[in-house]
Write a protein that binds this DNA or RNA. Structure first.
Lengths: 251, 251
DNA sequence: GGCTATCGTGCAAAAACGTGCAGAGTCAAG
DNA sequence: CTTGACTCTGCACGTTTTTGCACGATAGCC
């Protein structure tokens, strides 16, 4: 492995996992920790990351707020992202919702995959600049800063003009009775519109969302086609979803 | 094996494997490493690949490009950004072009300024998340990865529906005869459309752009209303612009 | 306050590098 | 056909870069 590839790898790890543990990387790559530490030092000098005891953290102070949440890119989210990324086939058109979990999907997409990604999240659009063979369509509109996605009438209109194979939806609550829900009314509308524009909708479910309900309901659980579930979710719960006719993929 | 065949082979390896290890290739082709190194050096000089210790990697212009440029936030760009940011008054609607200089404007906007920023750059949209009192409108469309801005028919249509007070335009060339120019045709169209949607257009001029001309012409210099100029630009040049009727702000 | 993991530095071996040079081959002019 | 200029390739040599190890210093945790 070439030295510059190693640095790319380190930055990739940082991006997908939100942190670097020097020891882990040295084990994975079968290199001495000294070498990894040297690389980290150089990357830190170049301002590409922030060096800390034991490893490194993302530098980017500008996006600190969003990145703050991003850093809790728990293993679960990474795994869900990887599982969902695998579901996108060559040539397909997929919609990625805003949110930290969907951002993981974008980052885990194979670098040589030829596909089209439609998104209303500028963050995801920027992340996909790294993927040369992916066509990116950004849906415009008013920026809702809390979630960093576009919403509103303009965004709704843009959605109406597209038609996708897949839609990966992020939510804040998945409840057997209350269905799928989120924290903002505009966002709920947007999610419904995106769902209507896609042939198949899959919900991304990390464990902490199961059984929770947020103020604004998107739709009943049965309205979506599938669920991409965290490994920590009990088999029994997943069986309930299957009974509703949902396809279940466990990360 | 002819030298040119060898170079084709090297580029083929690079394309299929994503990397070249000089030693491996020299073994495969039964040639000395010196020869391979020489070839790599020449291909690197021609910009066909990126030379690294031990071999070579793809040149990847799009990625390295923007990331590279982003770090060169020279003092000049910061100063231009600050000067331009001051021109935006409370309550106004301003269009920010894509590019590293306009990104500086976004970063330098006062945190308590109430205004609306319209942009086709997801990078700028994300940067403005930090500014709670700024309303952000993101223009959607196909993402042009080289500059990280949206372009195309959808973007043009979105532009047609807006009307702004100010437009800050980034360019790559400012030439007395050739006018304002940029490196991509779609972008040139987009800039013209944005100009048409704004009451006033100001060009951001850092010193290295003066006297330069890029392939795609946007418009004659006299079509814009003002110029925000780098401190390094000679007074005489600025006087010429004033003669054309442009308002000149020096950072 | 003590313990352990991590860190930085100096050092040496190995790998990769650039440069100069010589031999082999090519080509065109004479 | 011969000669000289030129290019290409491999080798030798000294230089630079990279890497792993040893050692003492330091930071974080209990």
């Amino acid at each position: 492995m070439l030295a510059s590839q190693r640095k790319d790898y380190l930055l990739h790890v940082l991006q997908t996992q939100g942190q670097i543990v020097a020891k882990d990387v040295s084990n994975e790559l079968r290199l001495s920790e000294d070498t990894i530490r040297r690389d980290l030092r150089e990357l830190a000098a170049a301002g590409r990351l922030q060096r800390v005891h034991g490893g490194a953290l993302p530098a980017s102070p500008a996006v600190a707020d969003f990145a703050g949440r991003q850093q809790i890119a728990s293993d679960a989210k990474v795994a869900i992202g990887r599982a969902a990324a695998k579901m996108i086939q060559r040539g397909q058109v997929a919609i990625l919702d805003g949110g930290t979990t969907t951002l993981q999907i974008a980052r885990q997409l194979p670098h040589d995959l030829r596909a089209t990604i439609i998104t209303h999240s500028p963050t995801i659009a920027v992340a996909l600049v790294e993927h040369p063979s992916i066509e990116v369509i950004l849906l415009g509109g008013r920026l809702f800063k809390h979630s960093v996605v576009t919403v509103g009438a303009a965004a709704m209109e843009a959605v109406a003009r597209i038609r996708a194979d897949l839609y990966f939806m992020g939510v804040t609550g998945i409840h057997p009775k209350a269905g799928l829900s989120t924290g903002d009314l505009e966002e709920a509308h947007m999610k419904r519109a995106l769902m209507a524009s896609a042939a198949e909708t899959h919900v991304l479910a990390s464990a902490e969302k199961i059984g929770a309900a947020s103020p604004y309901v998107i739709c009943p659980l049965a309205d979506v086609d599938g669920i991409v579930a965290d490994a920590a979710i009990p088999k029994k719960t997943l069986a309930d979803y299957r009974k509703l006719g949902l396809s279940v993929v466990q990360a």
